[in-house]
Each structure stands twice: as C-alpha cells, then as structure tokens.
Amino acid sequence: MIRAATTVLRPIAELGAMGLFLLQVLRVAPTRAARAGTLASLLVRIGTRSLTLVLAAGFCVGAMLAVQFHDTLTRFGSPSMLGAAVALSLVRELGPVLCALLLLGRAGSALAAEIASMRGTQQIDALACMGIDPLAYLVVPRLLACVLSLPLLTALFDVAGLTGGMLVGAISFGSPGAIVLDSAASGIDADDVMMGLIKSLVFGFLLGWICLGRAFLAPAVRGTEDLARVSGDAVVIASLAILGADYLLSALLP
C-alpha cells in the first residue's frame, strides 16, 4: 500500500520540485550573475558543436522523405508536389522534433552530466558559499542557450533536409531541382514557419529545463553510476516531454 502510494506520489512531488526550480530560475534570470558573460561560449558549445550532426541528419531525413513521398505522390498522380510535401513535413513537424531529439542526445545529456558532476564535486556548493547564486550563474545561461540554439539549428536542419530532398528528387526521380524548390516554396506559408519556430522554442525550453532541473535537483551524486542515472533519466523524460508537447502544439496551433 505504502509502496503504491509512493509510486504515485513521487512523480507528483518531482513535478512540483521542477516547477519550483523553474520559478526560482525565472526569478534570478535578470540578476548580475546570470549575465556573467558565459552565454556566448555556451551557444558555441551547444549550438556549433551540434552543427555537423544536425546538417548530416537533416540531409538524410530530407532524402528519406523524398523517397517516401515520391512513391505516395506518384500513386495519387501528384509527383510535382514532391518539394511541397518534403518542405511541409520538415518545417512543421520533423525539423523541430528531430532536431530537438538530436540536440537532447548531443547536448542535453552533456548538460545534465555536467551539472550533476558539479553537484557531486561541491562546485555548486562552492558558488553558493561565494555569495553567487548557482541558479543564476549556471542554469540561466544554459537554459537560454538551449532556447536560442534550437530554432537556429532547426532552420539549418530544414535547409539541409530540403537540399537532401532536392538532390534525391533530381538524381533518383529526374525532377529538376528548380521545380522541387518552386514546389517547396509554394507549399509552405508563414503559419508553417511560425509553427516550426514556436515548436523549436518550446522544445528548446523543455530540453533545457528538464535536463538542467533533473541534474540540479539530484539528491546525491557520488560516482559515475549516479551521473549516468541522472543524465539518462533526464534524456528519457525530456524525450517524452518533447514528443508530448509536439502532439499538443500540432493539435492546438493552426
């Protein structure tokens, strides 16, 4: 009975702790320690180091979409819509969600491990003892870097995906690149771009909040096993949150 109650109550308690963590982060966001000049280096670390991965993955996804859509569109007699179908899928859906999951695996797990390691080696305690709020100095810039990086990486993912789709269309199916591009341009409008942008901002926020929060609130980090557990849990929870948010945003936004 007690075990069952604990199983039910623990996630609620953890959600509450994460909510309080977020409120505290927002409260200290305008302070001096939060503007201590680490944002640029974090953007480089989180953003540019994920660049190659994002471009390669985007290219492959675009190429795969072209192959899939070509068969389907040919069956329905609209192969000329190949560019529009690839672009729409990338911009509205696959770009933000896949890019978020890639960044989560590449940078989110590293951020969680970094903060958990700092907790375990008393670096967070040391900051607090220096009179520096660790939430302001460590968490705010990292969260901001996640939120800013993801839309930029998603845009590059989309461009790489369109390039992949266009090349497959041209090489495998004989569709001239200009026609694929023209179809892509006519297939998406401002609402689609806005949808992709909002999704990537929300996913970036969820990624940062969950990875940083789970690591920051980790009760005891005493070794590599604890580090692996904290970062693994953070990635799993953030993945589910991103996919859940993807459904909600797709259902709610125009």
């Binding site: 700092m118 080696t121 008393q122 670096q123 305690d125 040391a126 900051l127």
Partner: peptide, 8 residues
C-alpha cells in the same frame, strides 16, 4: 572545500 571544488 575538501576536494577544492574549483570550477573546471
């Protein structure tokens, strides 16, 4: 701190 707790 015992282990230094220096920011890496």
């Amino acid at each position: 701190f015992q282990g230094g707790a220096l920011l890496n």
